[in-house]
Amino acid sequence: MKDIQLLTTHEQLKVLSDPFRSQLLLRLMEKPMTGQQLSEVFNLSRARIHYHLKELEKNDLVHIVKKEEKNGIVQKFYQSVASGFVADRSLLPHPEEMSETVRQMMINMLERSQKRVLSAPEEALHDETGSQDPSEWKYLSGAFEFKATENDFKAWLKKYFSLMEQLSEIQKQNPSPDAKTYYFHSLGIQVDEPIFERKKPEDEN
């Protein structure tokens, strides 16, 4: 699976702007699955799942990564061709479709993350420290707003991805039997207006 795949056709944008297909693609970014497995996950008929899989496959968004025979039936395992997608410059004449595609992927990712939080073990959410310093907590949760130029944001983004890469490499180099799996979901996007208003108590002014 590639890290990033370029979207080069208008049809690819249209396919991914469909809420269900983007949801399907997110599942196939996680691991290979068959049409039968997906029909059970989404509680939909295999025929309907198959139709959407074929649309994704036809537009080079998913591919078959392995086949297994079970009870005389060949099962096809589909997976996303990449863990992320970005629109090519050639698609700039279609800004509405580009925006809708990104919006749907973000919304579906938020819904998927919500399910991961709901299924997290109790120990992951139980903080024994009682610390007011978030860096000492055993989970990451927060919402922030900052003023920044686009260049400021892009420069910080490079540092952020570098830090994530460092974290992903630690256990590869020095495996520990105590290592746990951590799930991250990050979202940073320009908004119309701020919603946070922070004021000091009057006795601190």
Rank of each mutant, 00 (worst) to 15 (best):
D192H: 09
E40S: 12
N205C: 07
T8H: 06
A82T: 04
E145G: 03
P95V: 00
S119Q: 12
K67T: 15
F196T: 05
S99H: 00
N71I: 08
E111S: 13
V86H: 02
S131P: 02
P175V: 02
D133M: 07
F196N: 04
E123I: 10
D133S: 08
E128V: 08
F20T: 03
S90V: 12
K200M: 11
F20W: 06
F196D: 03
K138P: 06
E40G: 07
E123Y: 06
R48V: 13
L92D: 09
R116L: 14
E197P: 05
D178W: 06
D133P: 04
L125P: 05
D203V: 09
W156K: 10
R103T: 00
M98N: 00
Y183D: 12
G84F: 05
I49M: 04
S22F: 03
A82R: 01
E57C: 03
E145W: 02
P19A: 01
V15A: 01
L26V: 08
K14M: 12
I49K: 05
P95I: 00
S17R: 12
I73G: 06
A148V: 04
A155C: 08
H126W: 11
R103S: 00
T34V: 04
N174D: 15
K180G: 11
M98Y: 00
L125R: 14
G84P: 01
V191S: 02
E193S: 14
G130S: 01
K76W: 05
L26E: 10
R48N: 09
V15K: 01
Y51T: 12
T101Q: 00
W137G: 05
N205T: 10
